[in-house]
Design a protein around this nucleic acid. Structure first.
Lengths: 254, 254
DNA sequence: GCCCATCATTTTGTCAACAAAATATGATTG
DNA sequence: CAATCATATTTTGTTGACAAAATGATGGGC
C-alpha cells in the first residue's frame, strides 16, 4: 500500500486539520476503525511520519497510540521494526472465543444472582433498539449496539476485572471475525439470543442464562471458518504481504 | 516519604550506575518489587525526575515504565498529576479473586483434557522444588515458585488469552494480599493443594481438579481481611496520605 | 546470473530543552 | 484567624533535533 493510498484509507472525514490537535486516543480510534473497515488490511505496515502528518500530530502521539493498539493486540509492534496491522491466527481466534465463553458465562452467572428490575428494563430497552436498527437495515449501528449489549452485561455484573477482560475481548473479536468469516454468511449476533438471555436472567435461571450465552458465542464462532486449513489471508501473511490488499486496495479505499 | 528515603527504598543493589542503561522493563521490575516489599507503601507519590536520576535513565524511560505499571493497575497514573502506588480496594480485591477462580478453573479444566505425561512430570517437579524451598524456610523463593506453578498451568493449558489474563491477575494478586492480609497469619499457597491439583489433573478428574483449584483460591482469599469495614490502609487513603508510611517509613526502608 | 559487501536512504529510538499545568508559598484582606 | 488571591517553584507534558538501526540500492567478484 502506498502512502497516498493509506492516506485515503484513513481520511474518512476532515481529521487533524482542526484547531485542537488529536489525542492518541483519537488516533487509536481512527486506526482501529480503519482496520475494522478493511481499509487497512492485516499486514499493512504503519509508519510513524506519514500517520503523524495525516492526523496533524507529532510522532510521539502516534507512538502512544501504537502502544495502546499493540496492548490490545490490534497491531504488532516490534522494536526497531515498526508497527503492522495484526494477523489473528486460527489458534488465537479459537482461544479468544473460548475465553469469551468463560468470562461471559461468569458475567451472566453473577448478574443473574444480583440483577435489579431497573437493570432488566434497561437490557430490554437495549434489545429493542438493537432490533430496530436491524429492521432498519442499519447493520453497522446494530453491530455497535450488539457489542454494547455485551459490555453493559459486564458492567452490570459488577466485577471490574470481568469488565476489563471483556473489553479486551470485544476489542479483538471483530478482527478475528473479519479475518475468518465465511463471506457467504452474514455475521452478527443473532438478536433473538439477546432477548432470550435477558428473559433467562430476569427469571433468575442462571443455568439457562449461561447456556444461552454459550450457545450465542458458539453460534458466532461457528459462522467463522476456523478450520486448520490455511485461510487465504494467512497464506498471504506467510509470503510477507497480502495479495488481497494489492488486488482490492483501490476498490476498498474509495 | 522524602526523596532521600525513596532513594533508599529502591536502591537494593547498585542499579543504574553501570555502563548500559536500564530499560523501562527493568524500571518496572524494580518499582514493582519495591512495592511488594512494602518499601514503597500504597499512596506513595512517584516523581519522574528523582526516579530517573536514581536509575540513571531519562524521564522517557520512567514514563514508559509508568504506563506499563498503570496498565497492570500497580500504580495510579493521572494526567498532569503524576503517579502513585495503587490502593487496591476491598471490591477490587474480591473481584480479582473471583476472576482468578473463573480463569483458573477454565485453565485447569482445559489442561485436564489434554495434559501429557511429560507435563505431569514437570508439574510434579515444580511441586517438589516448591516444597523444598518451604522446608528450607526460603519463603520468598517458595512464593515465587508458587506463582510460577500457576503460570505454568496457564501455559500448559494452551490458550494464549487465558495465559495473558492469568498474568495480569498474578501481577495484581500480591498487591491485594499485601494490603489486606491478616498480619497474624502467614499467607501463601498451601502446598498440599498444588500436589492435590496435579494428582487430580493426572487422573483426568476435571471436576476434582477444578474443585481443588477453587478451594485453593478461596483459602488464599480467606486468609485476607476483606470485610466491608475500612482497613487502616484505606482509611489513610481517604485522608490523602497514609499514616502507615509515615510511622513506619524509616523502619521499612532499612 | 547469483551472492555478498558497501553505501545511501528511510525509519525508528532517544534525549534535552521548552511549554504548560499543578502545587506550594506567602501576602493581604475581611 | 480563615479565606482568597497573586506569585514562585515544582512537576508533568510536548516537541524537534539528533542518533541508531534497519532497509533498499548499487556494484563488484565469482
Amino acid at each position: 500500500m502506498t502512502a497516498a493510498q493509506k492516506s485515503t484509507a484513513l481520511r474518512t472525514s476532515n481529521i487533524g486539520k482542526d484547531d485542537i490537535p488529536l489525542s492518541s486516543d483519537d488516533v487509536f480510534s481512527h486506526v482501529y476503525q480503519a482496520i475494522l473497515d478493511r481499509r487497512l488490511p492485516p499486514g499493512t505496515k504503519l509508519r510513524e511520519v506519514p500517520l503523524a502528518e495525516l492526523f496533524g500530530v507529532t510522532r510521539g502521539t502516534i507512538r502512544k497510540a501504537f502502544t495502546q493498539l499493540a496492548n490490545q493486540k490490534v497491531i504488532d509492534l516490534i522494536p526497531n521494526r515498526g508497527a503492522s496491522v495484526a494477523y489473528p491466527t486460527v489458534e488465537e481466534s479459537r482461544d479468544l472465543f473460548a475465553a469469551r465463553r468463560t468470562i461471559e458465562s461468569a458475567i451472566v452467572e453473577q448478574l443473574t444472582s444480583r440483577v435489579t428490575k431497573s437493570q432488566i428494563r434497561e437490557l430490554n430497552a437495549m434489545v429493542k433498539r438493537e432490533n430496530a436498527a436491524y429492521d432498519k437495515g442499519d447493520t453497522r449501528e446494530a453491530l455497535k449496539l450488539s457489542v454494547d449489549f455485551h459490555r453493559v452485561l459486564a458492567t452490570m455484573a459488577g466485577n471490574s476485572v470481568y469488565a476489563d477482560f471483556l473489553e479486551q475481548l470485544v476489542t479483538r473479536t471483530p478482527l478475528v471475525v473479519l479475518a475468518y468469516r465465511d463471506p457467504a454468511q452474514a455475521t452478527a449476533c443473532a438478536n433473538q439470543d439477546h432477548q432470550d438471555l435477558v428473559t433467562a436472567i430476569a427469571a433468575g435461571d442462571s443455568v439457562r442464562a449461561i447456556n444461552t450465552m454459550r450457545c450465542h458465542l458458539c453460534n458466532l464462532e461457528g459462522q467463522l471458518d476456523l478450520k486448520n486449513s490455511t485461510p487465504s489471508s494467512e497464506l498471504a501473511a506467510i509470503f510477507g504481504l497480502n495479495a488481497v490488499s494489492h488486488r482490492n486496495a483501490k476498490r476498498n479505499l474509495q
